[in-house]
């Protein structure tokens, strides 16, 4: 096995959000959106003769989970939960509340749009902020948070308050690694690697690519940390190979009633209500392509494991992870004569 861990480290450094200005920019946009909402909402509610509601904010999505990756197309996003202390019965049509948010922000940027799960604020520079609008637990009789679903013009059946608990989801996705910081760190890396693999290998329109949250849930089910038991140095290559292997063996033949046939299917069930499969919108064809590409990934990782030449191994990995995976020069991997003198940190 070649020693490619160093190159996984620099690859991870390139794809993770946080080391670059982008994250600061995202934080700034999030702050501005929050401020605008707080400033403009009172007038909006007043105009509609409704009780003024002051929202509270909670980060969610990959930003909150710290599993974000730099998008290939430069379209950075941040998910923001906006919680209103109002019950689902006060606003039987959830789209009305989304319209109030829309109204408070419209004109603020290039474009604001009500989408089915959120209100999205687009910026010229390719950033956008997704605002998920909630009726918060404190206001509801059953003490549960509800997400406002639906957009203007949707049929009534698509305008619903959907029970949703992203905070608990984050907790559940990470509690597996309590007491194993090294494992948790590698778990986050594996999620990022899989998301970048998805961005590189799938076209992003519609549901042709597996969703990032789906890959995250898969990693929660099938990822096992792999690191040296003495040095705690990570072995990402083996961990990813085993993750892809486990995911592939979790594909089962499932009856899809809409297509009236059995299809090979990998599910990614949400760990909180509504416990649905986040891949449910994918077609059997899309799922088939998912399995094919995952098989390619697994086989490539295996080849990289068997490859003794570090350069060649990195070239294989670049094929599946894209150009951000560095291939070292010949000179860099040439085995140097061991240095006869090294420094140490010991005393007694």
């Amino acid at each position: 096995m070649a020693s490619v861990q160093k190159y996984f480290d620099s690859f991870h450094g390139k794809i993770r959000l946080g080391l670059f200005d982008e994250e600061d920019t995202l934080r700034d946009k999030r702050r501005i959106v929050r401020e605008k909402l707080l400033a403009n909402l009172p007038d909006v509610f007043k105009k509609h003769n409704e009780k003024n509601l002051v929202p509270t904010f909670r980060d969610q999505g990959s930003y909150a989970m710290r599993t974000g990756t730099r998008p290939l197309d430069g379209d950075f996003d941040i998910d923001q939960g906006v919680y209103f202390e109002t019950s689902t019965t006060d606003y039987p049509d959830p789209v009305v509340l989304k319209e109030r948010v829309y109204e408070a922000l419209n004109g603020h940027t290039k474009r604001v749009e009500i989408r089915r799960p959120c209100v999205t604020v687009f910026y010229k520079d390719g950033y956008h902020v997704d605002l998920a609008i909630y009726s918060c637990a404190a206001a509801n009789a059953d003490k549960k948070d509800y997400l406002a679903m639906g957009k203007v013009g949707s049929e009534e059946k698509y305008r619903v308050w959907q029970e949703s608990d992203p905070t608990t989801l984050t907790t559940k996705l990470f509690e597996r690694f309590d007491g194993d910081e090294t494992g948790r760190k590698q778990y986050r890396r594996a999620i990022r690697f899989m998301k970048r693999w998805k961005d590189v290998n799938f076209v992003s329109n519609g549901h042709s690519a597996p969703r990032g949250i789906g890959l995250t849930i898969n990693a929660n089910s099938y990822f096992q940390p792999r690191y040296n038991t003495t040095t705690f140095v990570l072995d990402d290559l083996t961990a990813l190979h085993e993750l892809s292997k486990e995911m592939l063996s979790a594909f089962t033949s499932t009856w899809v009633s809409t297509e009236w046939k059995f299809v090979r299917w990998l599910s990614a069930k949400l760990l909180v209500t509504p416990f649905n499969d986040v891949y449910e919108k994918m077609t059997s064809k899309q799922m088939e392509s998912f399995e094919t590409k995952l098989t390619e990934l697994r086989d490539t990782l295996k080849k990289a494991i068997d490859e003794v030449d570090t350069r060649k191994a990195c070239q294989l990995l670049r094929n599946v992870f894209g150009d951000d995976f560095e291939v070292p020069d010949e000179s860099e991997t040439a085995r140097a004569t061991p240095a006869p003198v090294s420094t140490h940190s010991q005393s007694a």
Binding site: T230, R335, T343
Partner: peptide
């Protein structure tokens, strides 16, 4: 590529 103590908490290659 050199003798390094795998038990060390300090990253290799630093001078103390």
């Amino acid at each position: 590529s050199q003798l390094l103590n795998r038990a060390a908490f300090a990253q290799a290659g630093q001078k103390f």
